[in-house]
Structures are given as structure tokens and as C-alpha cells.
Simulated assay, not measured.
Amino acid sequence: MQAPIYPWLSRDLLFGRPSVGSLMGLCEENYAALGRLIPGLRHIRGARRTVCPGNLDLYLDVLDQAPYTTTVRLTYLFGNLDGPAGGHAEPDACLRAYHDAQQVEVLGLSPKSLPVLRGPNEPLLLDKWRVNLFLAKWLDYCVQQGYRFEVVERDEGPRGERSSGVASRFAACL
């Protein structure tokens, strides 16, 4: 397996402006990282969670599964999951994976504690770069911690188990 290339470590990107090509490279890297987190991404359905001892559960909701794309929502839930609010999602990412192009597009990202979008005066390319950079670091963190969603014949078991309805309340993207 090829070692991941981290385009955000490039000196030009740290001190300059990202290009469309570097953004596409980052989206490809995000697709590979998402594939490590969810190896059966093309085949997984419904709402799931994965348990990683000593960490919060990570929730996944597959919103749409098409021949060439998969749209998912990925989040942690903080707080009382059984209470009326049902927990606080943070970060809350809506992603579309393009299997033919092997890219991931961030449709929505809501990290309230770490705002990545600055405002209308910033170029769109810079905003896309920031959200994809955040996603790259988060996906890398999740994989390093040992999170993994498995496709299993039955939707039960300790890893990649079916959620008890908590994650399924995320019916649409941001």
C-alpha cells in the first residue's frame, strides 16, 4: 500500500495560496482516508456507529447510495443522547464521495468550536481548501485512533454496529 501523501505539508501551500490542482489532490487524499475509515463505503447502508475504547463513538449516516457516488454524514455526538436535544453534533460533516474520480467533496461542515470559513471576502478556493484540510486532519485522526466502520452481513457487533436511531436523526445535509 502506498504511503499517504499529505498535500497540506507543502511549503507553498502553508505560506501561499492553494491551487485547484492542490485542492483536487487533497480531495483524493480525503477519499483514500475515508476508504480506510469505511472500507465498504460503496456497500454500507443506513445509520451506524463505531466504538473506539476511550473515545467518543463516531456516527455515520449513509444518506444516499448511487452507482458512482455516496453521500454520508459523519459526526461525534456530545451530551445526553437520550435527552430531548439528543446530543450535540461536533464536528458535523456532510460528504459526497465520487467513486469514479476517487474524490470527496465537503457539502457541509459545522465545527462550531473551530470555524473554518472566514467570510464573504475570502476566495471560494480558500474556503474549500480550509474545509478539506480540516476533513483531512479529522479523518487521519479517526483512522489513527482505531475507528473503523465495517460492512457485516448482519448489522450488529461491536465494530461498525447499527446505531440505535441516534445518528438516523440526521436526515439531510447541512
Score class of each variant (00 low, 15 high):
F15S: 13
C52T: 10
S22Y: 07
L26C: 03
F15I: 11
L58G: 01
E90W: 04
V72Y: 03
P39D: 02
G46M: 13
H88M: 09
M24A: 15
L60P: 01
V62A: 04
V62E: 05
G86K: 02
C52G: 01
E29A: 01
N80Q: 13
L63R: 13
C52W: 03
V72D: 02
P18H: 04
V51F: 10
G46E: 15
G25Y: 03
G79D: 00
L56N: 10
S22C: 14
V72T: 12
L81D: 10
A33G: 12
L58C: 04
C52V: 08
R45K: 12
G35F: 03
L23G: 05
H88D: 08
R49E: 14
E90D: 08
E29M: 01
C27S: 07
D92P: 05
V51T: 11
F78P: 03
L81K: 15
L60V: 00
V51A: 10
D57G: 00
G25H: 12
N30L: 04
T69Y: 05
I38W: 08
V72A: 07
Y76T: 08
P39I: 02
V51N: 09
P84D: 12
L41H: 02
R48S: 13
I44L: 15
Y31R: 09
L60I: 03
T70W: 00
N55Q: 11
E29I: 02
G79Y: 03
E90A: 06
L77S: 02
R42Q: 13
R73V: 12
Y31Q: 00
V62K: 07
T70G: 01
I44V: 15
P67Q: 04
R49I: 12
R73E: 06
D82V: 10
L26E: 04
Y68M: 13
L77N: 06
L63Y: 09
I44C: 08
E28L: 03
V20I: 14
P39Y: 00
R17Q: 08
V51Y: 15
P67K: 06
A93V: 15
G87T: 11
Q65T: 10
P53C: 06
A32V: 13
L34E: 01
G87H: 12
P39E: 01
P18E: 05
T70V: 12
V62R: 07
G79K: 00
D64I: 00
L26H: 01
Y59L: 14
L60T: 01
D61H: 15
V62H: 03
Y31P: 01
R48G: 07
D61R: 13
R42W: 09
T50I: 09
G54L: 08
A33D: 07
Q65H: 14
L58M: 11
P67M: 04
P67N: 08
P18N: 06
D57P: 05
P67Y: 06
G16R: 09
D92W: 09
S22N: 12
C27N: 06
R73I: 05
R48W: 01
Y59H: 14
S22I: 11
E29H: 01
A66I: 01
P67S: 05
P67F: 06
G40D: 14
A47F: 00
T50L: 03
A33H: 14
N55V: 00
T71I: 12
L58K: 02
D61T: 10
